[in-house]
Amino acid sequence: MKRKLIPYNKNLKQLARNLRNDSTLGEVLLWKELRNKRIYGFDFHRQKPLLNYIVDFYCYELGLIVEIDGRYHSHEEQYKLDIVRETELAAYNLTILRFTEIEVRKDMTNVLRAIENYAVEHTNNPNL
């Protein structure tokens, strides 16, 4: 499958590397489940720069971004910024699935089920 080229701010590369080394527990736990193509063979990347943002997890084959929201996402100002971010990313036909840090830590089964369901619904592979 040919990759969709999504531009990114090259100044974010080092910050993305730093974030990979300073992940939250939820990010570490979810990465263990997503890495090495464990979800139906799809390749996920973590702390991926896209446009002027760094997304937690990205699968180019599905056009899927998975975000883990921490405490600061409950603030109204952050919520407004998230809407702007989602709108800009949606212009590239990207979908964002959001989970809270608590959901990932305490209910991984349903988090993975939601990601798997998205994969099944958005691919033409009858073997999924």
Rank of each mutant, 00 (worst) to 15 (best):
L19N: 13
L25Y: 10
I68V: 14
A91L: 13
Y40P: 05
Y58Q: 04
D43S: 15
L62P: 07
P49K: 14
Y92P: 04
Q78P: 00
L112H: 07
M1W: 02
V84Q: 08
E103Y: 07
L29Y: 03
K13H: 01
N9A: 12
E103L: 06
N9S: 14
E76R: 14
T95F: 09
H122P: 01
E77L: 13
G26P: 01
F42Y: 15
E121G: 00
V111P: 01
T95L: 08
N9Q: 10
D22Y: 05
E77V: 14
T123M: 09
F57H: 12
R35H: 11
K2V: 14
A91H: 12
K48Q: 15
E33Q: 15
Y92M: 08
R20Y: 03
Y40W: 10
L81W: 01
D107M: 05
K32W: 02
L50C: 03
I96N: 07
E76W: 05
Y53C: 08
K106H: 13
H75G: 05
R85E: 06
L15W: 00
D69G: 04
N36L: 08
E77I: 12
Y118A: 05
E86Y: 04
R71D: 12
V28G: 02
I83F: 02
I65Q: 09
A90Q: 14
A119W: 00
K10P: 06
L30M: 07
D69S: 05
N125D: 15
Y60A: 12
E101I: 06
N52C: 02
L50S: 04
S74P: 00
V55W: 02
E67V: 07
R20D: 09
Y118L: 04
E33T: 04
P49L: 14
N9H: 09
L30I: 13
L94N: 01
